[in-house]
Amino acid sequence: MVENRPWLTFLSHSVLMLGVLAVAFPLYVTFIASTHTLEAIMQAPMPLVPGDQLVENFTQVLTAGSTKGSKAAGATMLVNSLVMALAIPLGKITISVISAFAIVYFRFPLRMFFFWMIFVTLMLPVEVRIIPTFKVIADLGMLNTYAGLTVPLIASATATFLFRQFFMTVPDELAEAARVDGAGPLRFFWDVLLPLSKTTMAALFVIQFIYGWNQYLWPLLITTDESMYTTVIGIKRMIVGGDAANEWNLIMATAILAMLPPALVVMLMQKWFVKGLVETEK
């Protein structure tokens, strides 16, 4: 702040408070709704203080889902979400870091061709090739499988570029010193490059964890079996009709389950999260 203007500081805080309020309000309502009976919520206006049904609602959704819509148990869905949220970043980091290593540290025929191939995937998000990708998965017998949920999503141009960019900043002399020390390419990769990439990997992991957890269209397409639903899909499948027909208390309890893990990751790993976000987009 350059000069002291109390009214401006006051205004700043007011605007920020308002922003925080707008951001937090839906969360608060969600939480309140998840602590009441359906009857309580159905009254307009719904209560704005917590009720006493928290344990009941969460027990219900964790073990048996809703009664009218999807009956997938929340616990199973959380496991499925977790599998996606872990397998996607781990798979993505693994295949991206090794392909970036090959592209940066080797010269070989077709190198640029591969590079462009990976680059072009940026222009083919799943949303634009829905039907044919679905057919490929169906033909490979990967519907309703973890492999089907995760493998097609682990190819990533951005992650490969991020590692490539990072490797470019690693001094050439480091690789040369390792070579003089007698390290071959894999040894250099393992002993030097990977330890140096730790922060990049952590940042990428946080971003991709959220990406994996929040996947929607993809699991919507390829999971028809309730036991394979992810939490986000489960919420959608609990909505069965007009707003009065839904068990909002259970839907909101599931929504809390769906938000909690990624929100915790963002809050607790804020440093990596911000770094990952800002750097993957560069």
Binding site: P171, E173, L174, E176, A177, A178, R179, V180, D181, G182, A183, D191, V192, P195, L196
Partner: peptide
Amino acid sequence: LEPKDRDIAMVFQNYALYPH
């Protein structure tokens, strides 16, 4: 010969120490 087989050691301008 590969560098490792030449029985030499090298000191680099930027030292090239492994930072980790």
